[in-house]
Amino acid sequence: MAIHHVTAPVAGAAARTRPPEPFKERAARPPEPGPVRSGRPPEPFGNRAARPAGSRAALLVLADGRFPAGGHAHSGGAEPAVKTGRVRDAATLEEFCRGRLHTAGLTAAALAAAAAAGLDPLVLDEAADARTPAPALRAAARRLGRQMMRAARAAWPSPELDALAAARPRGAHQPVVLGLAARAAGLAPLDAAYASAYEAVSGPATATVRLLSLDPFDATAVLAHLAVDLDQVAGTAAEAAARAVREGAEALPAPSAPLLDITAEQHATWPVRLFAS
């Protein structure tokens, strides 16, 4: 696996590892008519034949903040962070998002990539439970997973989605469903990791605009600043998923953020709140 070390152009940031570059591979691929792509470049791991080749643009649909899967009602921990003053402006929002991205975000992105790579979604669902110690966050993940399932089955009908919906009628963990949706859309594990990782920061950023009346341009700039981190997390997640294909789900990373877990439980007891989590 080719990994290029580059120095990030962010002041004060350490050199970051860049993920494998599917964009270049894909850009080099000549456009083909029709839905079947034959000249697809070699993929990092197997299980590709079982699913349809899709359009890369499906990633835009999946990662769109307007994808109707319930995310708008969740703050990703931003609501309690705003209340305690830990998030109070664009700078603290950025550090919050960076921390969330490299912890809960990476965990979710790796689960999503693994589901897209064809790992057993029920094994991944169990791995997600073990990686989500806060019951409020397990409940939110399953609720969002069920909502994601509804949207995904409408957008990309697939027997694999049907099977998971039947096996987990109350909802599987959202990253697992997202990864399986990406797979149904013909997207690659890295694509699923990108969608999941981006969601880990776009949720809190959008919520903070509502909670703090933060300037939406500042919030968008925060997301733009996190692009290098997003590349890194998505790349790490996809590599881990490739390892998990060979070694099992335990090879997936499990980074965690103590304050997100603690404050999620506090938030769940609030009688009055704007966001579901």
């Binding site: 350490a14 919050f96 490299h102 912890t103 169990e126 965690s256």
Partner: peptide, 24 residues
């Protein structure tokens, strides 16, 4: 079966660890 699986990373090289999501 997995019951609990958790990684924690702090200090230099752990992005955002001191921020409001991780240790505040």
């Amino acid at each position: 079966r997995p019951l609990f699986d958790q990684e924690l990373a702090y200090g230099p090289g752990a992005p955002g660890w001191a921020g409001g999501a991780v240790l505040g």
